[in-house]
């Protein structure tokens, strides 16, 4: 089973995303509410996939994505936001993330498509 870490500062989204992904057969092994705790959780839990909100209360989500993907055996990072991906210009493409999912389109198949 593919392990997932969900990073977002809104608890309602974390709950819903966990349900959606677990229903689709992913194993959600952790949640983080900001950039610092996301980096810490990633080191400890070593998830295969990180679903990362780009607007975090402490750090810039793109910066967090760069740090998370710095190592060779780094997890696959998928960015998410309640905004459209194209609102962020070229930042998504430059981030070393596998891709971008709008929050309301988060689903098992959509995630699998990006990870393939």
């Amino acid at each position: 089973m593919v392990t997932v870490l969900i990073v977002d500062d809104h608890p309602s989204f974390r709950t819903s995303a966990r349900r959606v992904l677990e229903d689709a057969g992913y194993q959600v092994i952790g949640e983080a509410h900001d950039g610092q705790s996301a980096l810490a959780a990633a080191r400890v839990l070593r998830p295969a996939v990180i679903l990362l909100d780009v607007q975090l209360p402490d750090l810039d989500g793109f910066e967090v994505a760069l740090q998370l993907t710095a190592d060779e055996d780094a997890p696959a990072v998928v960015l998410t936001s309640s905004r459209e991906g194209n609102e962020f210009g070229g930042l998504v493409a430059a981030s070393r993330a596998r891709g971008f999912l709008p929050k309301d389109e988060v689903s098992g198949p959509a995630l699998a498509a990006l990870l393939r």
């Binding site: 809104h10 309602s12 989204f13 709950t15 995303a17 229903d23 309640s82 929050k103 988060v106």
Partner: peptide, 22 residues
């Protein structure tokens, strides 16, 4: 708007999709 209503509507959308599938 972003932190309030929009987040709730996102969660709503995901939950409705789950309900439809279940």
């Amino acid at each position: 708007l972003h932190d309030g209503a929009q987040q709730r509507l996102v969660a709503l959308s995901l939950n409705m999709r789950l309900a439809r599938d279940r």
